[in-house]
Design a protein around this nucleic acid. Structure first.
Lengths: 216, 216, 216, 216
DNA sequence: AATGAATGAGCCTTCATTCAT
DNA sequence: GATGAATGAAGGCTCATTCAT
C-alpha cells in the first residue's frame, strides 16, 4: 500500500530488466520480448508503461542517471578543499567504478559507453544531463593541474587522454583477456588500475605543462 | 545510372561494398540487401560466393588486412635503427591514420575498432592475424622506453594507455563535436593529434619508469 | 487544459465523444482509446458503462436517434394538408440537412450512412427503428406522386433514385472536390442542392408515371 | 516455360487473392495474412513482390483497371454514330455491370466504390486514371442531352444524379434486401435496373433542360 | 557463374478487454 | 461510480537464407 517501498511492480521490473538487456546488447539488438521475459511481464507492458521501445530506453537512461548519482557522487570520498591531484584521483576512481561495478543497477556507465560509440536519438539529452557535467568537471581538474593560462586546446586534449585511458579498459574488455594470456590484470583490480592511470596522466600533464608543479 | 564497374567480378564488388557497409554499420546492423544493392549484385550473391553473411564478413576482414598492410606497412617510413621515440611516433601516426583515413578501402582500422567493442565470431582470427602483431610491436616500443627489467604489467598498462588515447578520438567521434562547441579540433588535424598523444605518453611512461632516459 | 465539462457524467461525455469518433472513422477504425481520450475518461470506462465497444456503439445509435427526432422532426416545417410536392421537398431538404449538418450532435445521418455501406451487428435494430420509417415515408410520397395503382416495384425504384441522389453527395464527398476543379458547388449550398434534386426527381417520376399530374 | 501462358505464379495468385480480400474488406480491414493464406503464399511474399501492403493495393488497382477495360470497354456494344440516348444507356449498363459482375477478376468497380467512400493514398492516382475519364464521358453525354449552352453546374449535377442512382444499389446492397421483404429485385436483374435508371434520368434531364428534345 | 522467387522466423506495435482496487 | 495496471491476440514488416533454374 505504501508508495515508497511498494513491492516490485511491473514498471520497476521492466526498468531493471531493460537496463540489463540494453547494457548487454545495445538498443537495436535488445528485443522487447527478451526484456519482458526477464521482467516476467506481458509483451504489451512496454507499450503501456513507456509507449515505445524508445520510451523505455529513455526511461532506463534517466533512472540509471539518478541511481548512479546516488551511488557514485561526484565528490567520491573527498574532504574539504581537496587538491587537484586528489580530485583527479577521485574522478578516475569513480569513473572506473561506474564502468566495472558488477552490482545490479549499474547500467549507467555501460549505457553511456554504448551511446558514445553507437548513438541513438537519446544521445543529445544524455550529453546535456550526464556527460557534459562530468566532462566539465574533469576539464576543471586538468586546468588546475596544467596551471593558469593554459590554452583551452591543451586542456581539452589532456582530458580526452584521461577519459580515453579509462574507457579503453571497458571498450576492449573482450579483447584484452585474449591478448594478455598470462594474467587477467586490469579489469579485476580497479583500484590498482586507477592509481596507474592517475600516475600516467600526471606524467603526461606534467610534460605538457611548462612547469613541474604537479610532480611533487 | 550505368553501373560504375559492372565488369569487375561480382565477388570483388561485393567485398568492396561489404567493407563499406560493415564499417558504417557494424556486422549486425549491416544488411545483406544493402550490401548487394551497393554492389549491384543479386540478393543471393552473398550466399553463393561466401556461404553466408558471416563468411562475407570474414572475407572482408582478410581482404582489408592485406590492403592495410600494403598501404600502412609496419615500418611506417622509418629509416634504419630508429630510436624508440621515433618508433612510438611512427606507431601512433599510423594508428591514427588508419582510423581516420577517408580513402575508399580503408575499412581495416574501423573494422578492428568495431570488433573490439562488439566482437563477432571472427574476433579470434582477427586477433591473431592483425591485432596481436600490432600490440606486440607497441609492447616492444614501450619496453624500450621504460628501460630494461621493467615489469610486464607496467609495460602492458602503458601500451593500453597509448592505444586508449588513440581510440578515444574514434569511439567518441559522435560525441566530441557536440561537447566541444568552440573548435572541432582533433579528428581533423591528425598530425597534430599524433604529436600531442606522443608527448603525453612520453610524460606518462617517463613518470612510471625509474629513470629519466626518455625525457631528453 | 481544464476539462471542458468534467462535471457532466462520464457516461454522457462518452456518448458524445463516441458519436464524434464513430461518425469520423466508422465502427472498426474508431478506437476505444481515442474515444476515452476525447471524453477525458479512463480507458476502462467504455467496458464499465457499456459492456464493450459494440454496446457503446448501440447506445450512441439510440441516443443519436432521439436527438435527431428532436432536431429534425418528420413533419419538417410542413403545414396542414401539404401537397405531395411539398412533402417531397421537405423530405429531401431534411435528408440533406441531416447529412451535412455541421452541428455537434448530428451524428445520426452520418452513422446511418456508414451503417448502410458497412453494416455492423447493430444494423437490424437501426433499420427497424430509424431507416424503415423514413423509407416508408418516402415511399408514400412517391406513391402519391406516381398516382394510384402504380406497381410497387416502380414506387420502390423511384424512392431509391431519390435517396441515391442525396447520398451520392455524401459518399463521394472526398472525390467530388477533386473531380470538379472549377467550383466546389454542392456540399456547400445544401438548399440549392435540394431544389435541384427535387426537380430532377420530379422529372424522373413524371416520366415513369402514366399521367402528368406532377408537372404543373 | 512459355511466358504468356505460364502457370499461376505467386505474384499472380497474390494479385487475385488481394483483389478479392480488398473488395470484401477494404484496405484497412484486409490483412496480409488472409491474402497470403488465400493465395497459398508465404507471409513475406507481399513484401517481396510489392514492397508493402500499400504497394500490393496499388498493384491490384492497376491490374483491375486493365482487366475492367478489356471486359467492359467504354463503348459497350455501341455502333457508329450513336445517339446521346444510346450512349447514356450504354454508360449506365456498363457501370452497373461493372459493379454487379459476379465474375472473379471484377474487383474494379467494387474497389473504386470503396475508394470513393473511404479514400486511401491511392485515391489521387485512381481518380486521374480511372474515375475522371468515366466522369468526363458522362458529362459529355449529359451535355448533349441537355442541349448546347447549358450551364456547367447543371451538367455536373445531372451527371451526379445518374451516378448516384447507380451507386446507391451498390452502397445500400446490404440494406435494400432487408427493407424490401417482398421481392429482392434490383441487384438481380441488372438489365431492368439499367433501363429504369435511364428512363428516370431522361425525365430528370428533360425537366431541367429548357426544351423537350430528349423526350421523343 | 549467377539469378529471381520464395521462405519462415522474428521484430515492434496496436487493440479491445479484464482484473483488482 | 470509476480507475490504473496488465493482458493476449493479431497485425505489418524485415531479415538472412534457400531453392530451382
Amino acid at each position: 500500500m505504501s508508495p515508497p517501498d511498494r513491492q516490485s511492480h511491473t514498471c520497476r521490473r521492466l526498468l531493471d530488466a531493460a537496463g540489463e538487456v540494453f547494457a548487454e546488447c545495445g538498443f537495436r539488438r535488445a528485443t522487447v520480448r527478451e526484456i519482458c521475459r526477464r521482467a516476467q511481464a506481458n509483451i504489451a507492458a512496454v507499450n503501456y508503461h513507456f509507449r515505445d521501445k524508445e520510451g523505455l530506453y529513455a526511461a532506463v537512461l534517466g533512472d540509471a542517471h539518478r541511481t548512479a548519482h546516488e551511488k557514485y557522487p561526484v565528490t567520491l570520498g573527498l574532504g574539504a578543499n581537496p587538491t587537484p591531484l586528489e580530485r583527479l584521483r577521485a574522478f578516475v576512481r569513480s569513473f572506473l567504478l561506474r564502468l566495472f561495478d558488477p552490482g545490479r543497477p549499474a547500467w549507467h556507465g555501460l549505457l553511456m559507453a554504448r551511446e558514445m560509440v553507437e548513438p541513438t536519438k537519446a544521445l543529445d539529452a544524455l550529453i546535456e544531463e550526464s556527460i557534459r557535467p562530468r566532462y566539465d568537471l574533469l576539464l576543471g581538474i586538468v586546468r588546475d593541474l596544467l596551471g593558469p593560462g593554459t590554452a583551452d586546446d591543451l586542456v581539452w586534449m589532456c582530458a580526452n587522454s584521461v577519459i580515453g585511458q579509462c574507457m579503453h579498459y571497458h571498450h576492449a574488455r573482450h579483447v584484452l583477456p585474449k591478448l594478455q594470456r598470462q594474467a587477467p590484470a586490469g579489469t579485476a583490480d580497479v583500484e590498482r588500475l586507477a592509481e596507474y592511470i592517475v600516475e600516467f596522466s600526471l606524467g603526461g600533464i606534467d610534460r605538457l605543462s611548462g612547469s613541474r608543479r604537479t610532480t611533487g
